[in-house]
């Protein structure tokens, strides 16, 4: 390969390598700064990613809608249009297979099942990366606080900013305290 091509290709590659993470940052920062904040009630479980470390998977309460439509099949993408209740928690307003022309915030979820008039889906922002020793503690804390016999079950929710269909998870809260701080107690 001619030297000029090598240098040209190297510069293009370097730019691409910088562009990909840069673009990821820009996109997510934009949602965090100008997106709409919703609260999603959730339950945490801790798994591991070989490269990105420990995270907790969030099992959201908002995970299904009533429909007898057989068109919704496993793996399909659905547009979940949202509104907030009085306390700011997210409620599914409309669910559609196609994008609708309205002003509501929406997220694109994946159908995980359709049975007996109930279509289950999984929201995309269900990973919350935590320090490796905190993730298992988070799951433990949640389980202890929400035991059936527990008198004061804790309110656990995810703070998610939404804009143009992209949801960015900012934090997970237990009784209004960031989970990262809560597990330190």
């Amino acid at each position: 390969m001619k030297r000029i091509y090598v240098i040209g290709l190297f510069l293009v590659l370097t730019a691409a390598q910088l562009f990909v993470p840069g673009q990821m940052i820009w996109k997510h920062e934009n949602v965090l700064s100008s997106g709409n904040m919703y609260k999603f009630k959730t339950q945490p479980i801790d798994p591991t990613d070989p490269f990105r470390g420990k995270y907790i998977t969030l099992n959201f309460e908002l995970n299904s809608f009533r429909s007898f439509d057989n068109k919704f099949t496993y793996g399909d993408q659905v547009y979940v249009y949202l509104r907030k209740d009085e306390e700011g928690f997210a409620i599914a307003d409309t669910v559609s297979k196609e994008s609708l022309k309205n002003e509501r915030d929406y997220v694109v979820a994946e159908v995980t099942g359709n049975y007996n008039g109930k279509v289950n889906f999984s929201l995309p922002f269900n990973r919350f990366y935590m320090e490796e020793d905190k993730a298992p503690k988070a799951e433990k804390v949640y389980t202890e606080l929400n035991r059936v016999d527990s008198l004061n079950s804790a309110l656990v929710y995810a703070k998610v900013y939404i804009k143009d269909g992209l949801g960015v998870l900012e934090d997970v809260m237990i009784d209004e305290v960031s989970m990262k701080d809560y597990v330190k107690r």
């Binding site: 993470p21 997510h28 990973r127 998870l169």
Partner: peptide, 22 residues
């Protein structure tokens, strides 16, 4: 270095993209 960069950005913004896509 490239792997580290993408994985850290994914961590910072809790990007859910699966391992295959990464």
């Amino acid at each position: 270095g490239v792997g580290i960069s993408i994985s850290l950005v994914s961590q910072i913004y809790h990007i859910p993209g699966d391992l295959a896509f990464f």
